[in-house]
Nucleic acid binder design. Structure first.
Lengths: 289, 289
DNA sequence: CGACTAGTTGAGGCCAGTCAATGTTGGTGG
DNA sequence: CCACCAACATTGACTGGCCTCAACTAGTCG
C-alpha cells in the first residue's frame, strides 16, 4: 500500500513532560508556564461556558505545556502512551488511523479550538497519528489532572463527556458518508462541513484554502486522489465552486448542500457563530470533522 | 430509499422514568427495584474491575429500571431526549443512524454486557435508533446520577471515559473498513469480530447464529444485501465457512482473519476471555462492534 | 536548472450495484 | 396439519461508478 513518502521526513515533536501519578488540587493551583485560558479567544471552543473566572484559572493551570509544530510534524503516534488531551490553539492537524496491514486512512481534520487525542483514553495508548497540516500550536492538558479537576467541577466533567460523545456522533456521520454516499455527495459534504467550520470561527464561509492534498481528502472520504481531482473539476464546470489548486471559492452553497443531502439552512444560525473576540458567549464545542 | 417495512410494526417501548433534576448520594443509596450489579454475571463487562463491594452497591443503586424488549422493539429513537445509558443484560440490539435525506445505516451491533446510548450525551438527544434484534433485557442507568457517582468514584469515572473512548476507537476502525476495504475483506472482518465477541462471552467462536438480516449486515458494512449473500456463498465454496441461513460455522478462522487483514493470533489471549461466572477478574469492556 | 511533489486528465477495466426471477423459511389461520 | 403469505435469501445477467494505469503540467526547493 502507498505510504506517504514524506512521512520519512517527519521529525518527532517534543513530547509532553511526564505526568505526576498523584495530583492534588493544591499542586494544580501552582503557577505554570503560560496558561491563560481565561483570556484565550478560543476558550468558548475548548471549555464549557458558565465556568466562573476562578474556575477558569484552575483549568488554565491544567495546561502545563504548549507545543509548537511545524507543518508535517507529529503531535503523537499510534501506540505511544496516552497522557494528555490536546487543544488546537492555532493551525490545523490531521489524524490518521492505521490498519494492521499497513493501510492508512485520514480519520479527521482538526482546526482551531478542537480537542484531540480522545481516543487514547480507552487503551492508554494513542489510537491514531496526529500530524500538523501547517504550523500549529497546541495546549497540552494532562489527562489525569483533567480527571481530577473534573471531579471538582461538574460543568467541566459534563463538558468532557459531551466532547467525547460529540466525537462519537461525528464518527457516525462519517460512517454514514462512507457507507452510503456516492463520490460527489461525499465531496460536497466535505466542502460544506469545512465551510461551516470556517464560518463559525469568523472566517469566510465561501473562500478558503485547503490545508490538505487531494490524496488526503480522498483518504478521508474513501476515494482515490484522481476521483477527488475529477470531482473538483466537475464541480467547477457545473458552476458550484471555483478551484485554483488548494484555493476554493464556493459559488453556489445551496446546490452544494443539496448535493450533500442536507436541508438548506440558508443563513447559518447566529447562535452557532463563535465570535473571535474573548469574553464571548458562543455555544459549546463546534466540532465537525 | 428503502425503509424497513416492518418498522411500522415496532411498538414503542416503555421509556425510562423521569430523572430527578438533583440527586444526592443519600437518595441514590435508597433501595431500588432490582439492582444487583454486585451479583450480576456480566458486571465485569459493564463495570470497572477493582470496585469494592460497597462501591458496587452504590453503582447497583444507579440501575433504577430494567427494560424488556421484544424482537423489533425500540429502546430509544433518534432525537428523543437523552436521559440514561443502557447496558445490555441479555439479547442484542442494533443501532442505526439516519441521514437527513432519509437514508438509514446500521452503526453497530451490541450484545450482552455492552453499554449503549453514549452518543446522546453530546447534544442531549439520542443520535441513533436502538432496536432489539431479539428478546432483550436492558439495565437503565440515569446519566445525571452516573455523573454524580463518577465524581465520587474515580475508578467509575475513568471507566466511563474509557468506555466512551473505546467507542471512538471502534468507530475509527469501522471508518477504516468502510473507507478502504473491499467487500470480501469487510465481511471477513465482520465475521471475525462476531466470532471474537462470542468467544469472549464464553460462547463458541466457530458456530453461532446471526441475529440480523443480510440487508442489515450490508447496511453496516456499506454493501448491498445481494453482495453479502454472494460473499457468504463464495466463502462457503472456498471452504472458509458453512452457511445455512443465519447459522454460521467457521471452518477456517485463520484464513478468514488473514482475509480481514489481521495478524493471526492463533488462540485468543486468555486475558481477554470473560468467564461467565460472577466474581471473575476479566479485563475491562470487551466491546467491538 | 533539474528533481520532486502535487495536481489534472484520459483510456480502459473491474468490483459492486441494479434489476429481476426464483427458492427458502417461518409464522398465522383455516 | 397443512396451505398460504410475507419476509428473507439466493442467483444470474447486465450496468456503471470508481479505480488503475499512464501521460502530462504546474509549482517549489535545493
Amino acid at each position: 500500500m502507498p505510504v506517504y513518502s514524506r512521512s520519512a521526513a517527519f521529525t518527532e515533536s517534543p513530547q509532553t513532560a511526564s505526568v505526576n501519578p498523584v495530583i492534588s488540587l493544591r499542586d494544580i493551583n501552582k503557577p505554570k508556564p503560560l496558561a491563560q485560558c481565561n483570556i484565550c479567544g478560543m476558550r468558548s471552543l475548548c471549555l464549557p461556558v458558565g465556568l466562573s473566572n476562578e474556575d477558569l484559572l484552575l483549568v488554565s493551570a491544567l495546561v502545563d505545556t504548549h507545543i509548537k509544530l511545524k507543518k508535517g510534524e507529529t503531535l503523537y503516534r499510534t501506540g505511544t502512551p496516552f497522557t494528555a488531551l490536546y487543544a488546537v490553539r492555532l493551525g490545523s492537524l490531521k489524524t490518521t488511523v492505521l490498519a494492521e496491514d499497513g493501510r492508512e486512512q485520514v480519520a479527521g481534520y482538526h482546526m482551531l479550538g478542537e480537542l484531540i487525542g480522545l481516543d487514547g483514553i480507552g487503551t492508554g495508548n494513542h489510537g491514531c497519528h496526529a500530524i500538523a497540516l501547517e504550523d500549529t500550536e497546541i495546549c497540552v492538558m494532562p489527562f489525569e489532572q483533567l480527571e481530577t479537576l473534573a471531579r471538582e467541577l461538574p460543568l467541566l466533567q459534563h463538558n468532557l463527556h459531551q466532547t467525547l460523545a460529540q466525537e462519537i456522533a461525528r464518527d457516525h456521520s462519517i460512517m454514514l458518508l462512507l457507507g452510503s454516499m456516492r463520490a460527489e455527495e461525499r465531496l460536497a459534504v466535505f466542502l460544506v462541513n469545512l465551510s461551516d467550520r470556517y464560518c463559525r470561527r469568523g472566517y469566510s464561509s465561501t473562500e478558503f484554502v485547503l490545508r490538505m492534498t487531494r490524496e488526503e481528502i480522498g483518504s478521508y472520504l474513501g476515494l482515490k486522489l484522481e476521483t477527488v481531482s475529477r470531482l473538483f473539476s466537475r464541480f467547477q464546470e457545473d458552476g458550484l465552486i471555483m478551484v485554483q489548486g488548494r484555493a476554493i471559492k464556493i459559488l453556489n452553497p445551496e446546490a452544494l448542500r443539496t448535493l450533500g443531502g442536507q436541508q438548506n439552512t440558508a443563513t447559518p444560525d447566529p447562535k452557532n457563530l463563535i465570535p473571535p473576540a474573548p469574553n464571548s458567549n458562543g455555544s459549546a464545542n463546534g466540532n465537525g470533522a
